[in-house]
């Protein structure tokens, strides 16, 4: 099937779904489920008013910064530790335990430790770090014996070995970890703003809840979906570029299975 028909089909399905949503909500007439025609103008207002700079930019900025810090830290540590069987034996279970702590539970601790106004960023970093770290360790330790021998025979420098062999070999796993971390970062962003913040989408969601303003809540939920879709698509595009050397099939299969 060519790209154009696929694209058309894609949006046709989407439009039908929105139409059905409109129809059903109008028929039901429930105050809890406003129709998309009510939600859309509110969204436009949110995106094209001071709200955008006062709430979306700071909240989303913290999320992206936290995720980026976690990514850099996780990849660097993962590449360093992943080639040492001993480091993995000692630290692997600890990392797995850290990842198992439900990230939203970190909010109360960081609220107490750094205060309500500053706790979002460290909470996001802490929550998003472990999937990147564990996946990088996994990818780095998976470099096969033949590549290790090849690198030794050609007497690669440590820098060339780390950046030229281990990092690219681990990259598919790293990207899988980055995707998981991104969705955790979004979750932690929202929860931390719901619990306590002076700005951000979560903060406005709580306000809307207090005023029983359901259309506004729905608008923020849809906005979060749009943002999630946007960031995920950007990350996927980056991944496709970085992993263009992989055979097509494995790339697509991997994207599907990790819910790309």
């Amino acid at each position: 099937m060519n790209l154009l028909t696929r694209f058309t089909q894609h949006w046709a399905v989407f439009l039908v779904a929105v139409a059905a949503w409109e129809l059903l909500t109008r028929l039901a007439g429930s105050p809890f489920f406003p129709p998309p025609s009510t939600i859309a103008p509110i969204m436009v207002d949110q995106w094209f008013s001071a709200t955008f700079f006062d709430h979306m930019v700071p909240g989303v900025g913290r999320m992206l910064l936290g995720w980026a810090l976690a990514a850099v830290l996780g990849v660097a540590l993962g590449i360093l530790l992943g080639r040492s069987a001993r480091a993995i034996a000692y630290l692997g279970p600890l990392f797995a335990f850290m990842r198992s702590i439900p990230p939203p539970l970190l909010v109360p601790f960081f609220v107490a430790a750094v205060g309500v106004t500053d706790m979002q960023l460290p909470t996001i970093v802490f929550g998003a770090l472990w999937p990147v770290l564990l996946n990088t360790v996994d990818g780095a330790s998976g470099v096969d014996a033949t590549k290790v021998d090849t690198a030794r025979v050609f007497r690669l420098s440590p820098a060339q070995w780390t950046l030229g062999v281990v990092l690219p070999a681990a990259l598919p796993k790293v990207f899988a970890g980055l995707r998981v971390s991104l969705s955790i970062a979004v979750v932690v962003m929202v929860v931390s703003e719901l619990v306590g913040s002076v700005n951000g989408i979560g903060y406005l969601l709580v306000q809307a809840q207090q005023f029983y303003d359901l259309p506004v809540m729905w608008a923020w939920i849809v906005t979060l979906g749009v943002l999630g879709y946007l960031f995920n698509s950007l990350l996927l595009a980056a991944e496709r570029r970085a992993l263009a050397w992989q055979p097509r099939h494995s790339l697509e299969a991997q994207t599907l299975a990790t819910g790309g």
């Binding site: 033949t146 025979v153 062999v165 990259l171």
Partner: peptide, 21 residues
Amino acid sequence: GVPADLAVVFQDYSRSLFPWL
């Protein structure tokens, strides 16, 4: 240690080559 003027061709070419290059 590995001498500087020696090269090895391994049996497992698919692993010996770097797929990303």
